[in-house]
């Protein structure tokens, strides 16, 4: 078959993460071989030993930025990528490891390592967008396979991807799922969490734990009041609810701050303020 134009070069990069976002690609069992025909898989170490040098048309980035090396690497990748997409909760919001943003990371080192002095890490776990301009974000822990495929299809067709941004709560109403909070008093982040999972947790009779991160303009204050009154939670119990896989997403930081101790609030404020678009050029990045 004569090729009308060059296949776009796809690269998949990993930072601090669990590999789950990359696995989302490998879990596209029906589409995988077709995908490899439509894209030139130029860099995807989890799947292939073959490496093609940049520049790349599309870079998918998994994981959060947690070390000085990773800061350099994300800059180097940005320079080589026409379109850079942050994929998953770590790359878009810092991930579960961003819980360090609320405490002293030196304390964390001491908990895990007998010789913490050998461990080099940054104080904060931050999304790619804290360091480089990001063209698109695919939320979720893990991201939704259908959304990932929609993004890739839209990219190939040169159109904007159609990825909804409404709340999980709305999905429940559409699917006719009985509200776990109203019916059973179970705390549920559905009203403030962005859709993407198809209201998975309420469908399995548990409260949403916010793995797709905050929706646009979430009313967390109202929801928190519900948790306190309707679900009978103590104020300090609200903190871990908002601080999980998208703990460092600004809307959830703000929501958790109302009930958290002042020390963690100040630390979190630093992480939001100081790192936004740190555009310094790295010395000599790899990639």
């Amino acid at each position: 078959m004569p090729r009308r134009r060059r296949r776009p070069k796809l690269a998949v990069w990993k930072f601090a993460s669990c590999d789950g976002c990359q696995l989302t690609l490998l879990d596209c069992e029906d589409e995988l071989l077709l995908m490899s025909e439509l894209f030139e898989i130029a860099y995807f170490l989890e799947a292939s030993s073959a490496v093609v040098r940049g520049p790349y048309d599309l870079s998918l980035v998994e994981g959060s930025i947690t070390t000085a090396e990773e800061v350099e690497r994300i800059h180097a990748i940005r320079r080589q990528s026409r379109i850079l997409v942050a994929m998953g909760a770590c790359a878009t919001a810092g991930g579960i490891q961003a819980l360090r943003n609320f405490v002293d990371v030196e304390d964390m080192k001491r908990v895990v390592y007998a010789s913490p002095e050998y461990v080099r890490t940054l104080e904060h776990s931050l999304p790619a967008s804290a360091y480089v301009p990001v063209d698109y974000e695919l939320p979720g822990c893990p991201p939704n396979k259908v959304q990932v495929l929609e993004f890739l299809t839209a990219f190939l067709q040169g159109r904007r991807p159609s990825i909804p941004t409404h709340s999980v709560c709305l999905d429940c109403k559409r699917q006719g799922i009985v509200c776990v909070m109203v019916a059973e008093g179970i705390p549920c982040l559905g009203p403030v969490t962005r859709t993407g999972c198809g209201a998975l947790c309420p469908r399995y009779r548990r409260g949403c734990y916010g793995c797709f991160g905050p929706m646009e303009s979430p009313n967390t204050e109202s929801l928190s009041a519900w948790f306190l009154i309707r679900s009978g939670l103590a104020p300090q119990q609200l903190v871990p609810l908002y601080r999980s896989f998208n703990a460092a997403a600004p809307a959830f930081v703000e929501a958790s701050q109302r009930y958290a101790d002042p020390k963690s609030v100040q630390k979190a404020a630093e992480s939001l303020g100081t790192h936004a678009f740190d555009q310094r050029e790295p010395a000599n990045g790899e990639a």
Binding site: F15, A16, R100, V119, T121, P240
Partner: peptide
Amino acid sequence: EPPRFFEALLRGRPHTDAPDI
């Protein structure tokens, strides 16, 4: 692989979080 300090970040969390985290 950069360290993510799971054992440390579990401290103080409700035990019911352990399977998900």
